[in-house]
Amino acid sequence: MRHPADRQAVALPEIPGMGRVYARTLTARGSRRPALEPVEVRVDDVTIDAEHLADYQRILGEPVSDVAPAGYLFVLSFPLALSIMTRKGFPLRALGMVHVRNRIVQNHPVRIGDSLGLRTWAQDLRAHRSGTQVDLVTQALDADGDVAWEQVSTFLAKGVRLEGIPAADDGAPRVEFSAPVPTGRWELPADTGRRYAAVSGDRNPIHLNPLLARVFGFQRTIAHGMYTAARVLAAVGPARGEAYAWDVDFARPVLLPATVAVRAAEADGARGRRADDATGGASFELALWDPRSGKPHLTGTLTRLPS
């Protein structure tokens, strides 16, 4: 991700509390201007709390270690993304936006004790066939100023049309999902959302309370997308290596409680390929689906990178 130099930096003393940014989501209406503000928020000298990291790792089935799994910095930096999305000048209303895609590149490991510089901005406001999409980009810089970790989270404001913005490049036409051979199956109890909310701080009511979930159009509470995605990453395990690109497309929410089928398997032809062999594409194919209907919750890939 190219870092845009021409932005106004808003330095925050620390990562804001989720309670505060959520309160702002209730009032932020979205400016509906067809452009993004040239602004980014920054927080310097962020360190990882060992106990919090352990709670995160345990809830996902990751080994408790000093290295943060790629999804952890999503959790840590999520308030920064929300604070961009709830600024007065942000064109879309944050409340009700749907996380549709997430790409993380872990260039090198981030550990307990590292001093990280986080910076977050929005880019690529674009018209999508079902609304308007925008990317929230976050980078984590190590003490040398190198990008250790970076993420592009794509959010969709359903049904919102803004005049004069470019159309999204939808890329290749969608391939119909056909349920593969599972490598695992999870029973996700009704309190899955509440338990992950307690660790991640993401207390969006659609994850907590069935009645409130109904208000937002879901029959029951839904699992956090990044919880399910990070559990699939955990299923890849140490085979992902230290450096990797992790891409996830969210298809349908997981209504809780749920039984879901999982596939985290080496991609065709990936076995034995070296991480620095750039010719072969994805190392692992990832999928989560409803074993009854065969419909996908998420699909994705993990590609090992030379570390």
Binding site: G61, V181, P182, T183, G184, R185, W186, E187, A235, G237, V262
Partner: peptide, 16 residues
């Protein structure tokens, strides 16, 4: 690591 019972694992192998 997979959440699948031994029988469910074997069912996959059986089909394969």
């Amino acid at each position: 690591r997979t959440g699948l019972s031994m029988g469910e694992h074997q069912a996959i192998t059986t089909l394969q």
